[in-house]
């Protein structure tokens, strides 16, 4: 067991079917989720402390053009003689920032649309879902290209495009959940007590859909980073900013392949893939934990064991 439990307070140890411990459950039951979380945490920490541990400047020339990896420059140098490792660290900061900022936007819009639409139903539901449908059918890459062309290539535009386009599936999932929660007896009881809509949504619906929102959001981070990289690679991003996508674009445009400078491409591609896979592993594990229907569908391949009623490990009953 990778999870340590304090023995100090027995009442706090009781773990049951309520969802507040969803992250812990996901991590306990899916080893891949631990790896995914580790990857994400690693890159987030690296981005935060990046400026302090970065060996060279990410903008100034510190070695020869396309210098191969060496003891001084672990990942070699790019076409401008800039240290690749420093550039990767700097690019990660921006890429992750774009990913998380866009995800935050999509989480707020998607969660808001989903909850309002599912909770109120009727014409609110109809009109919000029509808007969602329209956005759902817009191809994200195409819209992003159009916006980059019209408003100019900038990080802010990339964040906006991803944030505005990626919430639709979240909204639909949250809507379905909100609709089912709305019909629960305890919601009716709370309404019967005289509670207003704001209280019911804030205190009862939101905490209930929260974990689902998080699971979706983690998956959206992966999509956002992927989309950002794709846009940058297509040259639709401010070329003055270093991101993992622009690094890839630069290497591609400036003959890194024909020069045999694999170090300008492979490490960058690897970190992009690692972060995306990490997000998917974690997101899917959380989704799996939250959605009991997925469990039933996998009955045949799942290991079954009886979960103890109280306690865990050796003091389980």
């Amino acid at each position: 067991m990778s999870v340590q439990i304090s023995k100090a307070s027995p009442s706090a140890e009781v773990v049951g079917p309520h969802r507040s411990g969803f992250l812990r459950t996901a991590l306990r039951e899916h080893k891949a989720a631990v790896a995914g979380l580790a990857v994400i945490v690693f890159f987030v920490v690296l981005s935060v402390i990046g400026p302090y541990i970065s060996p060279y400047s990410a903008t100034a020339q510190t070695c020869a053009v396309y210098a191969p990896p060496s003891a001084q420059h672990w990942l070699g140098c790019d076409d401008g003689g800039i240290d690749m490792l420093s550039e990767l660290i700097q690019g990660g900061r921006v890429s992750l920032l774009v990913g998380f900022a866009a995800t935050l936007i999509s989480m707020v819009i998607g969660g808001g649309f989903g909850i309002l639409s599912g909770y109120f139903g009727g014409w609110v539901d109809t009109s919000l879902m029509r808007i969602t449908d329209y956005l759902l059918v817009i191809p994200d890459l195409v819209l992003a290209m159009v916006i980059a062309e019209v408003w100019g290539a900038s990080l802010l535009h990339v964040i906006m495009v991803i944030g505005i386009l990626e919430w639709t599936s979240t909204a639909r999932i949250i809507r379905a959940e909100a609709m089912s929660i709305r019909e629960r007896v305890y919601i009716k009881r709370t309404r019967g007590l005289g509670a207003g809509n704001a209280r019911i949504i804030g205190r009862h619906i939101l905490p209930q859909v929260g974990p689902l929102l998080v699971a979706n959001t983690v998956l959206t981070v992966a999509v956002a980073i992927y989309l950002e990289t794709a846009l940058a690679f297509l040259g639709l991003e401010d070329p003055g900013v270093t991101t993992w996508g622009t690094i890839l674009n630069n290497a591609f445009q400036r003959t890194a392949i024909s020069s045999g400078a694999w170090w300008a491409i492979v490490p960058d591609g690897f970190v992009i893939a690692a972060v995306i896979v990490g997000c998917f592993l974690l997101g899917q594990a959380i989704e799996d934990t939250l959605n009991p229907r997925l469990k039933v569908a996998h009955l045949s391949v799942r290991r079954w064991r009886l979960r103890p009623l109280i306690g865990r490990g050796e003091d389980a009953i």
Binding site: H18, S20, R184, V185, Y186, G192, H204
Partner: peptide, 15 residues
């Protein structure tokens, strides 16, 4: 006036 519901498994917020 307060209501008491049939199903106590459903009428309390599990969280």
């Amino acid at each position: 006036m307060q209501m008491i519901y049939q199903d106590p498994y459903e009428s309390l917020d599990p969280r």
